[in-house]
Simulated assay, not measured.
Amino acid sequence: MLFSKRERAIRRIIIVEDEPLVAFDNEYSLNDAGYEVVATVDNLTEAAEVIEREELDLVLTDVKLRGEGDGLDVARAAGAKGVPVLFVTGNCPLEARSLAIGCLAKPYSDKVLKSALEALDRSIQGEKVKKIPAGLSLYEKA
């Protein structure tokens, strides 16, 4: 087949977001794009449980979360399991560079989120990323 779809490295995603509307929009958008959203949670405890028990390809997390801990703690839990992290936040802390593969600045549209995941997917697979969407910062592999 001449124009076959390329195989995605990112298929199974957890969304860690404490803003209900943003979480819902992300979940709907990603499901619509063919990703499997394994869980949508709003705190470190639930995120760590999902990361521990599920096979994931990406953790999509905000930095500020409900309750104890934050997105940096989520990224540490994901890193311990070898799962890449994309921060989605208004202000990405410097420490994020050592914990994640990238950061997507809020606010962002569904189109930008999907484009960011496509760029991350290419990066994970060792391909050259030709166009980085506005608001996305890619880091060296953590």
Rank of each mutant, 00 (worst) to 15 (best):
I124Y: 02
A80W: 01
E95P: 07
D62F: 03
L58V: 00
A134D: 03
A96W: 00
G102W: 02
R97D: 10
V112S: 03
P107R: 09
V88S: 08
K114L: 14
L21T: 13
A116R: 04
M1C: 11
A100H: 04
V50F: 00
G102P: 03
E49Y: 07
K106L: 04
I132E: 05
E49N: 11
G102V: 09
D42K: 14
V41K: 05
D70L: 06
D25K: 13
V83C: 04
L86I: 07
K81N: 06
G90D: 05
N31S: 05
F87L: 12
V22C: 08
R97T: 10
S109L: 07
G90A: 08
D25G: 12
I124S: 02
L99N: 01
S4C: 02
I10V: 08
L21Y: 06
D110I: 15
A119E: 09
L65G: 01
L99H: 06
A134K: 15
A47P: 01
K114Y: 11
D110H: 12
V129N: 00
D70N: 10
L65N: 12
E118L: 10
I51G: 06
E49H: 14
E27P: 07
A80R: 15
Y108K: 10
G135F: 07
A78E: 01
L120C: 06
P107C: 01
A105I: 04
F24K: 15
A142C: 08
V50Q: 08
S109D: 07
I10Q: 10
T89P: 03
E68T: 10
A48N: 03
P20Y: 01
L60H: 00
D110Q: 15
K130S: 12
V37H: 00
L138Y: 01
A142V: 05
E95S: 04
L104C: 02
N43V: 06
N91L: 14
A116Q: 09
K111P: 04
R76K: 11
